[in-house]
Amino acid sequence: MSLKKKLIIISVIGGVLVSFLAFITVHFLTRKPKKLPSSPSLQNRSFSMTYGDLHEATNGFSSSNLVGKGSFGSVYRGSLLNFEGPIAVKVLNLEKRGAAKSFVAECNALGKIKHRDLVKILTCCSSVDYKGEDFKAIVFEFMPEGSLENVLHNNEGSENEKHSLILSKRVDIALDVAHALDYLHHDEDQVVVHCDIKPSNVLLDEDMVAHLGDFGLARLIHGSKEHSSKDQIDSSTIKGTIGYLPPEYGAGGPVTPEGDIYSYGILLLEMLTGKRPTDNMFYENLSLHKLCKMKIPEEILDIVDSSMVMPTVEDQTWIVENNIKECLVMFATIGVACSEEFPAQRMLTKHVILKLLEIKQKLSS
Rank of each mutant, 00 (worst) to 15 (best):
S235V: 02
S147M: 11
Y264N: 00
L29C: 01
C125P: 06
I121Y: 06
K295W: 04
L94N: 12
V139A: 14
G213M: 11
I233L: 08
F342N: 11
R276Q: 08
K239Q: 15
F28I: 08
A105I: 10
N93F: 07
P33C: 00
A332D: 06
K162Y: 11
S339Y: 08
P247K: 10
E298W: 12
A57F: 05
I233M: 14
G157S: 13
H211C: 04
G70Q: 03
S200D: 06
L204F: 13
I266D: 00
T333R: 13
P33W: 06
L291A: 13
I87G: 05
S168A: 02
S365E: 15
L92D: 09
V209H: 01
K198N: 08
K225M: 00
S235T: 00
A178G: 06
E321T: 05
D176T: 12
F135D: 03
K35C: 08
P199M: 06
D214V: 10
N150V: 06
S339L: 05
I9Y: 14
S71C: 10
L286R: 12
C292S: 04
K120I: 03
S224H: 13
I242H: 09
G15S: 06
M208N: 05
E149D: 10
C292E: 07
W318L: 11
N93I: 07
L7S: 15
M308E: 01
I334H: 10
H289A: 06
I233Y: 08
L175A: 07
G265K: 09
L288F: 09
S2V: 00
G335C: 14
S228T: 15
K114M: 03
L354C: 12
F72D: 07
E270Q: 04
K120A: 00
Q43V: 04
T58R: 02
L92V: 05
V336D: 04
E56T: 13
L212C: 10
L175Q: 04
D134V: 03
G146W: 10
D189E: 14
L118N: 02
G14Y: 14
E161G: 01
F135W: 11
P311V: 11
L354W: 09
T312S: 14
S365F: 04
A105R: 14
A88W: 06
S307A: 15
P199C: 04
I319N: 09
L269Y: 04
K34V: 15
Q232G: 08
K295S: 00
E341G: 00
A57H: 01
N285R: 11
T25K: 02
I359Y: 14
A344M: 14
L122G: 08
K6G: 10
A218N: 07
